[in-house]
Design a protein around this nucleic acid. Structure first.
Lengths: 204, 204
DNA sequence: TTTATATATGGACAGTGTCAATATCATTGG
DNA sequence: CCAATGATATTGACACTGTCCATATATAAA
């Protein structure tokens, strides 16, 4: 039942994903093709079909591993953080900011609707895990008040994602903060604090 | 000097862009290729090279026309709106919301960093036009106060873009607003009003 | 060991982007 | 008006891609 060193190659699926990730980082998702990945993994051009029936399946599989990486990064950050819901939310946001800045190609792939299947369970489960975590923390803040959790969560996630995405595109180049002088991500986090404040969430 | 019905085809560049847009709407940007567009326009597969040297150039050219469409939509909306900066900003946001909902493939193409060249002047000019408009209106609100315009503008645009983009991906399906019962875009706009309020921008 | 299943190979096909050589049209100069 | 020039379109070619097929081989089960 050991997964390594079985069959012809060993664990080809893992090898394919490793190769795909390397190509993604260097050439973007355009370069991540069935044949190119197979070539890098040292197998024939038709070998991957046994593990990924499609190019779409390959990229979806890759995206799933990327989401797991983010989740791991979030968990690591949460270890050294207090139980304050606001601080825990901030950890999630910072994890995404960091991931997008360090691995723009990986982050961009995650939200490519054409080459990644967001309908599949494995993808949905992972998205929901993060979303539900945020909602749960927001609930801790809004307890008893007449505030819709989803609205706050969607607003938060939208701003978080939009900032990362537009920064990757290059939209925000040469637009430094001339007043506070702090990093833009910090400014955006502070901006969200003001939202929470206005919503009566004093603890943040 | 008339542009129509000149040379072999007439105005092939326009015909190519029309064909490209039709394919984009029906098949997404993956289907928008040099050969497919040429086929639809009724010319040989190598004809487009005279007007777009690349597939990237073709998609960039297409994106430019899309941005012009959005700008036109914004201008139209602004006609029936008062001089209140907050209302004018809201018009811009609503124009983008509407465009993203009605033409998801077009909106998604706009921010595809790999197939659209955001460095070129024609693209930058159009992006800056909208951005500067928003900044200008924000300035009218923040006049004299110690608030960084770019921070507010980036936050606004991030939230606006992120919401549209994630909605296209399907991230927000089945997450209705259970409290207010209003549309999510309205809720997000209201959310931004709270930001402005908190920033001391009473007029919004 | 035999059988069955999972996995990998090589060949083929249609499709793609891009380039080079050629042909045709439109405009300009004489 | 005619010739020349530059812009535009066509055809053919090349390497590459995703996907399918028949085949071969390795593992697991009987």
């Amino acid at each position: 039942m050991v997964k390594a060193k079985r069959f012809h190659h060993g664990d080809l699926k893992r090898a394919l994903l490793d190769a795909a990730l390397e190509i993604l980082d260097t050439q973007g998702d355009t370069g991540v093709g069935i044949r190119a990945v197979a070539r890098k993994a040292g197998v024939s051009h038709a070998a991957p079909v046994n593990h990924f029936k499609d190019r779409r399946a390959l990229l979806t599989g890759l995206a799933i591993t990327l989401f797991d990486d983010i989740q791991a990064s979030i968990s690591k950050r949460l270890e050294g953080v207090s139980n304050d819901p606001a601080m825990r939310i901030e950890s999630v946001v910072k994890a995404f900011f960091e991931y997008g800045a360090e691995h723009p190609n990986r982050y961009a792939l995650l939200w490519r609707n054409d080459v990644v299947d967001h309908e599949c369970d494995e993808m949905r489960i992972r998205e929901d895990a993060v979303y539900d975590f945020i909602c749960n923390e927001i609930d801790n803040l809004t307890a008893g008040r007449n505030i819709d959790t989803d609205t706050v969560a969607i607003g938060l996630w939208s701003m978080m994602h939009g900032y990362i995405d537009l920064k990757i595109v290059g939209m925000f180049e040469e637009r430094e903060d001339s007043v506070t002088g702090e990093d833009r991500p910090e400014a955006l986090i502070k901006m969200f604090r003001t939202i929470f404040d206005q919503y009566g969430l004093s603890s943040i």
